[in-house]
Simulated scan of single mutants.
Amino acid sequence: MINRNRERHQPINSGYSNTNNTSNNINLSIDRIEIAKETMNFLMPFPRIHAILVKPNEKIPLEPDWQHKNNYPVTSTYVLNHLISGGNWGLIHPAGMSVGIDDDNSHIRKAVLSLGNTFSYNTGKPGHYCDIFIIKDEPVGNIPLIDGAYIRGKGGQNLGPGSIHPNGNIYGSTYFNLVPPLKIKKSELLEKFAPVINGKEKLGKNGSKAEYKKPINPESLEMKDLVDLSNFKQNGQKFQGPHPIHGSSTGSNFLVDLDLNSWHCFRHGTGGGPLQWIAVSTGVIGCEESIPGKIQGELFWKVIAAAHNNFGLSYEKLVEALGGE
């Protein structure tokens, strides 16, 4: 077992030595699984961070489309079983509302430390680390840094603690700073890292099927601002017409109720409020998936990202208005 002191707010030396354990493959395997389990349990309150399967002793994701589909909550037993069977795992940030930083040299290290104390661990080479931050206001993509390092946000991944580097070293085995990921604004991140940024940010966007023609107040999202009702039939505060996304053979399979600030699809028997409509209209979920309780956890952050990326809405104000963390 690896000793951890959760009360300390300084980097923790695990007391684990790769050199002392290379002759005992069983202990090596058990120790790395314990490191991974502890990470999974500790990151559980941060649903915007997800996990993926990575090939054994490599940095290459195992499954296709891992950025959008084949990623899992950090506590996934599917991921844990993959680790137990000898595989690696990665930490990813589907909505770009958290990042992992390749902390590979003293200049990057200085930028990291200037932001404050955050969750971090050693990677595969001496003096190399990965640092995790939570982003409070708007998404971060992948930003190249000096010496081939990256700020890895939406579309990027870092090997997780307990993974095995191609050189045999174990992530999180000698340095494991078990403190909550620090919450910062994107502007703070960019300001502190400006001296080491070495290229343009790449931030993918969800494809949008909806057109927003009016400015939207994120503190009071209303369906009348999200759907063009000009050609709908009106009955009081209810408007009925063709579904804006998948259409209608009858021309009347979609209802918007302004009193309830809600919508309903008669084809699928689904519906919801503004958040659900943003999810459907941007392709984050299908119309048939819009059921009560659907938008939560990491999916909530994907919808928030879609609202920002497609419609220019403020992340911070959206999260406050919609009750996010």
Rank of each mutant, 00 (worst) to 15 (best):
G273I: 01
S230L: 02
K233F: 10
S220F: 07
N235D: 14
I245R: 04
Q276S: 15
W301Q: 05
A306N: 02
L255K: 10
L313K: 03
G297N: 10
L275A: 04
L226D: 03
D259A: 06
C265N: 00
V284I: 15
P215W: 13
I216W: 08
S314P: 06
V256K: 03
K294I: 13
I216R: 11
W277S: 07
E219I: 07
N235I: 10
H308F: 13
P274S: 12
Q234P: 04
Q276D: 14
S290N: 09
S252K: 13
N310S: 12
H268K: 10
W263C: 00
L318M: 13
E298L: 07
N231S: 13
E219D: 13
D225R: 05
K224M: 08
H268Q: 05
C265P: 00
E211V: 12
V280H: 07
F266S: 09
N217F: 12
I278V: 10
S230A: 06
Q276I: 03
D257R: 04
N309F: 11
L258I: 09
K302Q: 15
G293A: 01
D225H: 13
S314R: 10
P244C: 00
S230N: 08
I278Y: 04
G251L: 00
S249I: 00
S230M: 03
M223F: 01
K209P: 05
E289G: 10
S230P: 05
G271A: 08
S230C: 04
H268N: 12
E222C: 12
N253A: 04
V256N: 02
F311A: 09
I278P: 00
Q234F: 07
Q237G: 07
G241E: 00
S290M: 05
V303G: 07
Y212F: 15
